[in-house]
């Protein structure tokens, strides 16, 4: 054994700072903490700010011209008609709803299937690659998706289904599905991963195959999280602007088939805000649509968050 060093520690000489420096340090720390708190609040401030500023611009319209009945039940959106201005947003709601549902029909099976596959079945190596692919898919800008809708999908749909216009619900649904899938996969996978391995081991110890374990034990245990994934995917579809602006074909009417062109709430704002005179009624009406979008996204996100949290707490 090595001999312990003979040199003893010198007598106590605590590194002492002057009381001024000490106070400076303590104050410095307090200032930094205050700054950090302010930044910590930024998210709350911004969410409130978004609501307040959008509400502020929409307020005059809500006071004077707005009627729930017209806004929610009339499909006639003629904000700059010379004879009779009408603000019925039903067709816009229908447009948003139709492509949201359409995209979910595609994205839900693919997204959840992929989430289940990469969480339960595939090898770690493949999982790594799949996650990168999903990340790349999520990274493609929405304007590029819109471009793809116009330049690639549009002629394809015209040729395949022999319809006059390829910019329609089908087109937008496919594009939106591709945009929503990464969201569904990553949140769905999180939810599945949060199911403790003990569940899987217990099921397998009872003789269940991997398949039975997955669909009878893991998926039911993760169902709240998977539902949240669906909700957030939907949120993405509802809120998407550029891609749907370019892919839906820009026509305001109640859709009757998947080959109909429509217009969504988001696309209407994007398309008309540039022309609407600032502070005018039309301008305020567009902010009112924005207010509705904000409310929808708020509800969707709160619900999804609640589902995820509720789910985590239970396990």
């Amino acid at each position: 054994m090595q001999a312990v060093d003979a040199k003893a520690l010198p007598a106590l000489q605590t590194v002492e700072l002057s009381s001024f420096h000490k106070r400076l340090r303590i104050w410095g720390e307090k200032i930094i903490e205050a700054l950090i708190l302010i930044c910590g609040l930024s998210a709350i401030i911004l969410v409130l700010g978004i609501f307040i500023f959008v509400f502020k611009e929409a307020w005059p319209f809500l006071l004077s011209r707005f009627s729930w009945r017209e806004f929610l039940t009339s499909p006639e959106w003629y904000p700059d008609s010379a004879t009779k201005v009408r603000y019925g947003a039903l067709a816009l709601f229908a447009g948003t709803a139709s492509i949201t549902i359409g995209s979910m029909v595609v994205a839900l099976p693919v997204g959840l299937g992929t989430a289940i596959y990469i969480s339960e079945f595939c090898s770690p190596r493949f999982k790594e690659i799949a996650k990168i692919v999903i990340e790349i898919l999520a990274a493609i800008p929405s304007v590029v998706w819109g471009f793809v809708a116009i330049m690639i999908l549009n002629p394809l749909i015209i040729k395949l289904f022999d319809v006059p216009i390829g910019l329609n619900i089908l087109n937008a649904s496919v594009i939106l599905a591709l945009m929503a899938i990464p969201v569904i996969v990553s949140i769905g996978e999180d939810a599945l991963r949060a199911v403790p391995d003990a569940y899987r081991e217990a099921a397998e110890a009872l003789g269940a195959t991997r398949l039975e374990t997955t669909f009878r034990v893991v998926v039911p245990a993760a169902k709240n999280g998977l539902f949240a994934a669906l909700l957030l995917g939907m949120g993405r579809a509802i809120g998407e602007t550029m891609a749907v602006l370019m892919a839906t074909g820009h026509s305001i009417h109640m859709p009757t088939s998947v080959f109909d062109s429509v217009r969504t709430l988001t696309a209407t704002i994007a398309a008309e805000l540039g022309e609407a005179p600032k502070g005018g009624e039309h301008y305020q009406a567009l902010f009112t649509i924005g207010l509705f979008l904000f409310a929808i996204s708020f509800i969707v996100n709160l619900t999804a968050d609640f589902m995820v949290r509720g789910f985590r707490r239970k396990i």
């Binding site: 040199k7 590194v15 420096h21």
Partner: peptide, 25 residues
């Protein structure tokens, strides 16, 4: 963190403490 900046003094402290903890060698 307590405010000592002098590199030579720090060197001294490091060696001293490591010796005292029987880790220096």
């Amino acid at each position: 963190m307590a405010g000592v900046r002098d590199k030579r003094k720090l060197n001294e402290i490091v060696e001293d403490c490591l010796r005292n903890a029987a880790l220096w060698d």
